[in-house]
Structure formats: structure tokens, C-alpha cells
Amino acid sequence: MQLQDLYRDLILDHNRHPRNFGRLGAPARQALGHNPLCGDQLTVFVRLEGEKLADVRFEGSGCAISTASASLMTEAVKGKDRATVGALYDQVHALLTEDGAQPDASLGKLAALSGVREFPARVKCATLCWHTLNAALGEGSATVSTE
């Protein structure tokens, strides 16, 4: 278990300076994600243009892993279509939970999250934003919880 695998420079940077932080007004979709275990709470906003995620933002408060993961996620999914985002979600999920999963080149910066797998108590911190994005992309607005 290596601390520097978890708190990589990229993660710390996105925690300190989260990208796409803030709200999107209507008619953007939004969903609230909550991890009752640690009190992390974030809202993901998505503005769709047809199938494309034209803009994605998030706000809330959480630990470094959940903040950095959300920040990296917004960068990664912005401008992509739903199908691509769905595939990305599956890849990130595998990276975070499956033993021996190697980051694919298509993951880009999201590969920085691979260290989280060695810290099982923290996996939910990293996946919270993705579940919340999924909820926002579903029908209407929703609240998701990690528990």
C-alpha cells in the first residue's frame, strides 16, 4: 500500500484546483450524490446537446479523492456523447475495483485513479461522481447514495 500511489500529484492538483467547479442553470440536468459514510456530497450538472454532453460541471464538498475524481471526470466527459461516456464509466469502474486491471490509454488522466484500488475504503470516494453523473443522465433529477 503506497500512499504516493493514492495521492499522486495530479490528484492533489485537481483537489486543490478543481476544474469545471460550479453550477449550470436550467435547462441543464443535475443530480445529487451523497456518501453518508464520510459526508461527501456533490452535485453534477450536465447540459446535453442531443446525445452530446456539451457542458459538465460539479460542486459540493468532499475528500481529495472524491473532488479530484469529479474534476477529472468533468474534463474527460465534456464534449463526448453518451455512449462514449458509458464506456468510460465501465472502464473507470473496472480500474477502481478489478484486481490487476490496467489503465487503457484511452483513459487519459483518469488513469491517475488506479492507486485508489489499493485502498478499498476509498473506492466509493472515487466512484461517487460517476454514479451521480449517471443519475443526472437518467430520467429527470435524482439523488444517489453510495450506501
Binding site: M1, C38, G62, I65
Partner: peptide, 22 residues
């Protein structure tokens, strides 16, 4: 500047068991 959850993980990596949360 540090969320208690991160603090707990780093302390744990040093063998220090504290409770973090609500």
C-alpha cells in the same frame, strides 16, 4: 485544507487508527 477522510487514510498508512466521519 484536508478532509478528515484523507487524514484518516494517511494516518492509517502510518499505523495510526483514528475514527473519521460524523
Amino acid at each position: 485544507g484536508v478532509h478528515p477522510h484523507d487524514l484518516g487514510t494517511i494516518l492509517d498508512s502510518q499505523g495510526v487508527a483514528v475514527r473519521t466521519g460524523h
